[in-house]
């Protein structure tokens, strides 16, 4: 108690000032970064930037093939990860008891996966998908690697969405004599759908921002991909390449960064709106 009473108003002021300064520094750093990206990016961004092929290693021209490659990479990742994510989340919430051995093993695997650094996913994807499975440097290798990376966050948020469905509903379906399967199909999954989609969007956002895992799996090629077995360069890899390996590529890098950040903001906004929608429904029930 003694030290509580000994607290001096002057120390109060110091803490107050420090807290406000910290909040201000965070906001200013963010503003500086965003200002730079928007300011420098807008000067180069145009409709033709989005719709033409890069020329002179990306210094000139646009990023059309790179956008297509990014979309394909994300599509592969979603297609593979979505069923796995929803299945695992349903398993954890409705089919195994919390704290049972099975649930603990799956949970622990997810925690480990979530902690693996992205460059290590890149090493793994290169050794396993590209070389061992013989997929080579391709959009398929990259997309599968991204799926592995996005899996934990997708499962966790789907799980949260399913757990948010009131247990009364589960008891109600049991009282009606519904099987768990039909309860899930007709009641629980539809009720949790916005949260599930929000979770999937978060996973996609994570995948879209990724660079390190893609450099050795989907590769560097900046031509329009002809199939999923072609190498394709994602926007993030394009930004990296322009910044590090192309002298005078900064302007284009900023424009590509603006496109990528814009894409991510849209994805996150959808995820946020959907999860708010769920919360609001929970409250008004």
């Amino acid at each position: 108690m003694a030290d509580l009473i000994a607290v001096l108003p002057r120390r109060d002021l110091v803490l107050k000032a420090a807290v406000h300064a910290a909040a201000l520094v965070v906001a200013l750093a963010f503003a500086a970064l965003l200002w730079d990206v928007i300011g420098q990016g807008l000067s180069r961004l145009s409709w033709s930037f989005l719709t033409t092929e890069p020329r002179s290693s990306g210094r000139l021209g646009g990023i059309a093939p790179i956008i297509i490659s990014t979309v394909l990479l994300l599509l592969v990742a979603i297609t593979v990860a979505t069923p796995l994510a929803i299945g695992t989340a349903v398993l954890l919430v409705d089919f195994v008891r919390t704290g049972s051995l099975g649930a603990r093993i799956v949970s622990m695997s997810l925690d480990i996966l979530a902690g693996v650094p992205s460059i290590v996913f890149g090493l793994f994807g290169n050794a396993f998908f590209a070389i061992y499975l013989g997929l080579g440097f391709s959009i398929l290798s990259g997309g599968l690697t991204l799926a592995c990376m996005a899996l934990p966050i997708m499962i966790r948020s789907t799980e949260i969405g399913l757990r948010a469905v009131p247990d009364d509903w589960r008891r109600g379906t049991a009282a009606l004599g519904m099987t768990k399967t039909s309860a899930l199909r007709h009641i629980l999954l539809p009720a949790a759908a916005p949260a599930i989609i929000a979770g999937l969007m978060l996973g996609i956002g994570r995948a879209a921002a990724e660079t390190a895992a893609l450099v050795f799996t989907s590769g560097y090629v900046d031509r329009m991909p002809g199939s999923l077995f072609d190498s394709g360069r994602s926007i993030a890899v394009h930004i990296y390449d322009l910044t590090m390996n192309v002298a005078g590529g900064e302007k284009s890098a900023y424009a590509a960064a603006l496109v990528l950040v814009g894409l991510l903001v849209i994805i996150n906004a959808i995820a946020l709106a959907l999860s708010h929608h769920v919360l609001r429904k929970r409250i008004t029930q």
Binding site: V106, S109, V120, C148, T181
Partner: peptide, 30 residues
């Protein structure tokens, strides 16, 4: 209770196993 739930449960357990398998595969390949 139902047979369907039994099948679905088994199927989901296999899906959930994929995550664990993935962790093991990553460790193995590294």
């Amino acid at each position: 209770r139902s047979k369907v739930d039994g099948y679905v449960g088994t199927g989901l357990a296999m899906v959930g196993g994929v995550c664990t398998l993935l962790v093991l595969t990553i460790a193995l390949f590294l």
